[in-house]
């Protein structure tokens, strides 16, 4: 396990460095001149030269890359070209919305999918199973941004139970803030719940066919005890892997859903930064989000190694 952990950590660092190089090359080297992109084609040479000096673009690419990475390592994310605000400060405010949103969607999707998956597995081939399979197919096919729009139509426009978008801020109180996050979280959770329910169902079906389940039943254990004490516990190994990966996908899905509900989270900041050509913000946010995906993959692999005692197959 130790050798595996060390090797996996090495791969994590290598992938992270490669990702940072891709982002740097894409945003700072390939376009040629970020100052030109910011000021447009009609800018004068003097203005361009002044902006290049201000942004440090007159430095060699290698030293700019090293300065960027050193800044990230020490929490210095630079300053937004458009707002003149430190990016770390902007990010802190936005994460206070995006992370609770992803966590709430994660909790909702797990709360829907686990019982549905177990229920379907125990009723294989019967009406209940088909209904769950149908729900999963619809959940996989309905885009989260459309589901979000439908939720607004039903719960905000027709019933008037929720606001159609926006965020009052955590300072407005826990309940109003949570209320603003509930519909976006539901929109995000549907497709994740659909995927997870399918995984839980097939993992449970596989486990319920194992010899030790028959032995447990033969010993006279109650159906409930066999289901939750033996089958579900073992079926959780593949489910745990998917749960981890889903959190990464939820954060990515939030980029779109935040824009449906006008939530001022990281996703909305990223989109605003693109349309305002705020390349420094785009650079930092893209690396942070891809770094998050790489980190989640690492944690899932390590957790999988820890909870599944069977030897890992060679790559």
């Amino acid at each position: 396990m130790l050798a595996f952990t060390v090797r996996r950590l090495g791969q994590f660092l290598a992938t992270l460095i490669a990702a940072s190089l891709v982002v740097f090359l894409a945003l700072e080297v390939l376009p040629g001149d970020a100052a030109q992109i910011l000021l447009g084609v009609e800018a004068t040479e003097e203005t361009l030269a002044a902006l290049r000096r201000q942004l440090g673009l007159d430095e060699p690419a290698m030293s700019r890359y090293v300065a960027w990475i050193a800044g990230l390592a020490t929490g210095e994310l630079g300053t937004s070209h458009i707002y003149g605000t430190p990016i770390a400060e902007m990010l802190g405010d936005r994460l206070a919305i995006s992370l609770p949103l992803a966590a709430l969607a994660f909790a909702i999707s797990t709360a829907i999918a686990l019982p549905l998956g177990v229920f379907a597995a125990t009723r294989r081939g019967r009406l209940g199973d088909w209904l769950v399979i149908g729900f999963a197919q619809i959940g996989l096919a309905a885009p989260n941004f459309w589901f979000g729009v439908l939720l607004i139509l039903i719960f905000a426009v027709t019933l008037g139970w929720f606001a159609s978008g926006g965020f009052p801020g955590w300072e407005a109180g826990f309940w109003p803030a949570l209320q603003a996050l509930l519909l976006p979280a539901l929109a995000l959770a549907l497709s994740e719940a659909a995927i997870l329910a399918r995984v839980v169902r097939s993992a449970m079906l596989e486990t319920l066919g194992e010899d030790y389940i028959r032995t447990a039943r033969a010993k006279g254990l109650s159906g409930r005890r066999v289901l939750f004490g033996h089958a579900l516990r073992n079926a959780m190994i593949p489910v745990a892997t998917i749960l981890g990966l889903q959190f990464a996908f939820l954060v990515m899905g939030a980029v779109i859903v935040e824009n449906v509900f006008y939530l001022p989270g990281v996703g909305r900041l990223l989109l605003q930064a693109i349309f305002q050509r705020d390349l420094v913000v785009v650079r930092d946010l893209v690396l942070l989000l891809s770094g998050f995906v790489i980190l989640v993959n690492l944690l899932v692999d390590l957790a999988y190694g820890a909870i599944d005692p069977r030897p890992r197959p060679a790559a």
């Binding site: 791969q11 992938t15 490669a18 990702a19 891709v22 982002v23 894409a26 945003l27 390939l30 376009p31 992109i37 996908f249 990515m252 980029v255 779109i256 990223l270 989109l271 930064a273 693109i274 050509r277 390349l279 785009v282 893209v286 989000l289 891809s290 770094g291 995906v293 790489i294 993959n297």
Partner: peptide, 18 residues
């Protein structure tokens, strides 16, 4: 592995930014 670190939304963001 590296490509999987950039879901399609992030790659599109990178390309659109430039």
């Amino acid at each position: 592995d590296l490509i999987f670190a950039f879901p399609a939304v992030l790659t599109a963001v990178l390309i659109a930014a430039v």
